[in-house]
Nucleic acid binder design. Structure first.
Length: 292
DNA sequence: ACCCAGGTGGCTT
DNA sequence: AAGCCACATGGG
């Protein structure tokens, strides 16, 4: 069975880019969504405030004027992008519920009030967050771009650059440590290769969130934090609460935890933010990484 | 030269 | 269970 994620060959050959519009969009800001650390392939912001991204093999230029989201894209279709940007979810409710439970989070929500948790491809998230460990966001992006250029499908010239899809599982699984070492991935080469091979045969983990979490952690190179990121961004498991160095600082500064009391932070998030933990975490992370 | 980044694995107490 | 440390890379 093929575990590669789906592509739409007919659309890919349609070089005339289509326009898709979504009207009356609230609680939405492209910079918040695309620069809050959840995705790594929206890396060009043009002078007019539009962003260029590559999503599941589709090219996209996104523009938002405050009410209407306009996408120039060569594929996916309306339903795909509606889902990707999580437009069905009412974030006004989520935000007021978070503030009702804890007014300390209000400044973070104000600072990133247009954040939405994208519904991204699991496989891409799996590999991207393996790369993220002990790394910074600009370099994570470079690593992923290098992988895509070397192993991903060439998609064409789009807004000033050659664009490549994120590699398919098979494309990475057929590579080698030797080959990967040229891409500045450091010691993560082995993690990436073994994850690709494993994903190709096993596919995405299933079962209860406990079981999923356990399966993810059994990948070499995935620990608690990365597993939580994959759960949150790759499976839309909103109760995930990834704790990295930034969140540790936040939990120390804003909530009085000792910096290394990860367990306490995790329990607090579970009890305090519950099913919205992942979204709370994202407002907080964005707030702290952006200020000064 | 050092410290840090969306940490983890492995080894030692 | 908790505390170290190395790990590869590049920017400050």
């Amino acid at each position: 069975m093929i575990k590669d994620f789906k592509r739409n060959p007919e659309m890919m050959e349609d070089k005339a880019n289509g326009i898709i519009e979504f009207n009356d969009i609230k609680d939405f800001a492209l910079d918040n969504i695309l620069e809050c650390g959840q995705c790594f392939r929206w890396n060009d912001e043009l002078e007019d405030g539009t962003y260029i991204g590559i999503v599941e093999g589709y090219l996209c230029r996104a523009k938002f004027d405050g009410t209407t989201l306009t996408l120039e894209t060569n594929g996916g279709g309306r339903d795909f992008w509606f889902d990707y940007f999580d437009l069905k979810t009412d974030y006004s409710n989520i935000k007021s519920e978070l503030i009702r439970n804890d007014d300390r989070i209000e400044p973070a929500i104000k600072a990133g009030s247009g954040i939405r948790i994208l519904r991204q491809n699991f496989w891409e998230v799996l590999i991207s967050f393996i790369i993220s460990q002990n790394n910074n966001i600009p370099r994570i992006k470079k690593c992923i771009e290098a992988l895509s250029v070397k192993y991903g499908e060439y998609l064409g010239h789009f807004y000033g650059r050659e664009r490549y899809a994120f590699p398919l599982p098979s494309e990475l699984a057929e590579s080698s440590i030797n080959e990967l070492e040229g891409l500045k991935l450091g010691y993560r080469c082995e993690y990436i290769l073994s994850a690709a091979k494993r994903y190709l045969t096993e596919g995405a983990p299933s079962g209860s969130s406990e079981e999923i979490y356990k399966t993810l952690m059994s990948y070499h190179g995935i620990g608690t934090k990365v597993a939580n990121c994959i759960g949150l961004f790759g499976l839309h498991n909103l109760s995930s609460f990834p704790i990295d160095v930034w969140v540790r600082r936040i939990m120390h500064d804003m909530y009085g935890f000792k910096e290394n009391d990860i367990k306490g932070m995790q329990n607090f998030a579970k009890g305090h933010f519950g099913e919205l933990g992942g979204i709370a975490q994202q407002y907080l992370f964005n707030y702290y990484t952006k200020k000064e």
